[in-house]
Design a binder for these strands. Structure first.
Length: 253
DNA sequence: ATCGGTACCTGCACGC
DNA sequence: TGCGTGCAGGTACCGA
């Protein structure tokens, strides 16, 4: 999404920012709108799941939460929570559940800057080092954005399936050989999902409002009761750390 | 410092 | 048809 967003936004000027829900904002809507008016967009970056829009003065930090969408030149609807009118075109922020957020800061806030490394860039030795001593289930650790930035519930389950690791395994007790499989599994599933345009299970669409196709390739996520693609055993669903967790009880010990 | 549980919000699929 | 329940790609915050 950021790759597509950057060429649309870079160099543009924000004529107007309008907000239709208080919930997605961390600060006063009027103040944010005023602060953004007339700003020029210098660049767009991804920091894990956070989208950072660099302005000529300050930064805009956007998170899509569960159901957030950014739409370029789309039509506003019932779930449009913000409209950014640019000198050329406009950007909509739609979000049914309103777990998404839009913040304005002088610089990238510490809680975003201090996220863990990017999963597609982290080296195997660093990955192994960061798992040491962690007593939490490996699935919970994958969801912890301070451990790695950007892995969410779908890809955590899919990565563990590829690595043949049970989601409840205590992270710090995973041996190097299996950690290597996990490192590879995370990178593989992320690369494949990006290539497929993301997973459109109910809401996700890209900037143009088009769905992705990786939901067709999911091996365990959302497949509870269905046959494991490798061994035919029914995929199991448990709740771990408050999140639905899907795995094959035979392939993942 | 780390961990588990809960809250936040709306819509949908399901069983009765 | 209508209603209650559980579930959903997220993070923040609390107490232990």
């Amino acid at each position: 999404m950021v790759r597509a967003l950057a060429p649309c936004l870079e160099g543009r000027r924000i004529r107007r920012a309008e907000f239709f829900s208080q919930l997605i904002l961390r600060h006063d809507p009027g103040k944010i709108a005023e602060r953004m008016r007339g700003r020029r967009i210098a660049g767009v970056e991804r920091h894990g799941k956070f989208i950072v829009v660099r302005l000529d003065r300050g930064v805009l930090v956007i998170h899509l939460g569960m159901t957030g969408k950014l739409l370029v030149n789309g039509e506003p609807g019932a779930y449009t929570r913000a409209i950014f009118t640019l000198d050329r075109g406009r950007l909509l922020f739609d979000d049914i559940r309103m777990f998404g957020s839009i913040e304005c800061h002088d610089a990238v806030p510490a809680r975003v800057a201090r996220l863990g490394p990017e999963p597609l860039l982290v080296s195997l030795p660093e990955f192994v080092e960061r798992m040491k001593g962690r007593k939490t289930p490996v699935k919970s650790l994958l969801l912890n954005q301070g451990f790695l930035r950007g892995v969410g519930n779908i890809y955590a389950d899919e990565a563990l399936f590829r690595a043949h690791i049970h989601p409840r395994t205590v992270a710090g007790r995973i041996r190097p050989a299996r950690a290597e499989r996990l490192h590879a599994g995370i990178q593989e599933v992320l690369r494949q999902a990006i290539a497929a345009g993301g997973s459109s299970i109910s809401d996700y669409v890209n900037l143009m409002g088009e769905q992705g196709w990786f939901q067709m390739e999911l091996r365990v996520y959302g497949r509870d009761g269905e046959a494991c693609v490798d061994c035919g055993t029914p995929v199991r669903r448990i709740v771990l750390g408050g999140r639905g967790t899907h795995y094959c009880p035979k392939c993942q010990r």
